[in-house]
């Protein structure tokens, strides 16, 4: 039976961007306000789940042709790479470095290697959540 999901699909199209935006905000604000890679990642995967609910797995895979298992690997690589990067500069494993720069639009901004580490967390969380949901969803 094919149901008509028009309202859901239309609302999703609008809501989706808000959620993704909010999750990105959470991710970037993590160092100063509540949030961070973990919650950000969960929120982003929440957006994808909403897409899955509104459409179906096939459509979502066409829109987002991502292998989430590879995403886990990439995330782990980010985190481990950032951690190991310190070794190149003769400091202990997982030593972060940060600096403040004046960017044209944003004003005084800090650049922090912890963000790279957090990116790893972010990617792993999305990868894990989506792998689990997709695997279970595809199974009969």
């Amino acid at each position: 039976m094919k149901t008509n999901d028009l309202i859901l699909q239309t609302v999703s199209k609008v809501i989706l961007f808000l959620i993704v935006l909010f999750s990105l905000y959470m991710f970037f604000a993590g160092h100063y306000h509540p949030g961070g890679g973990f919650v950000g990642g969960l929120m982003t995967s929440g957006a994808i789940v909403l897409m899955l609910l509104a459409y179906d797995i096939k459509t979502v895979t066409t829109i987002l042709p991502v292998d989430y298992k590879k995403m886990i690997a990439v995330g782990l690589l980010f985190a481990a790479g950032t951690a190991a990067g310190g070794l190149l500069f003769g400091v202990p494993f997982l030593t972060h470095a940060f600096t403040y720069v004046d960017l044209p639009l944003l004003g005084k901004t800090s650049l922090h290697t912890a963000v790279l580490f957090d990116t790893g967390v972010y990617l792993v969380v999305i990868g894990v959540t989506m792998t689990i949901i997709q695997t279970i969803g595809e199974s009969e």
């Binding site: 481990a80 951690a83 912890a114």
Partner: peptide, 22 residues
């Protein structure tokens, strides 16, 4: 260089744990 203490502990002071939790 952060203000959210929880997150700074997670990724900086005790980032090693986070690495293996992910």
């Amino acid at each position: 260089g952060g203000e959210n203490m929880v997150n700074v502990i997670l990724v900086d002071f005790r980032g090693f744990d986070t690495l293996f939790e992910i």
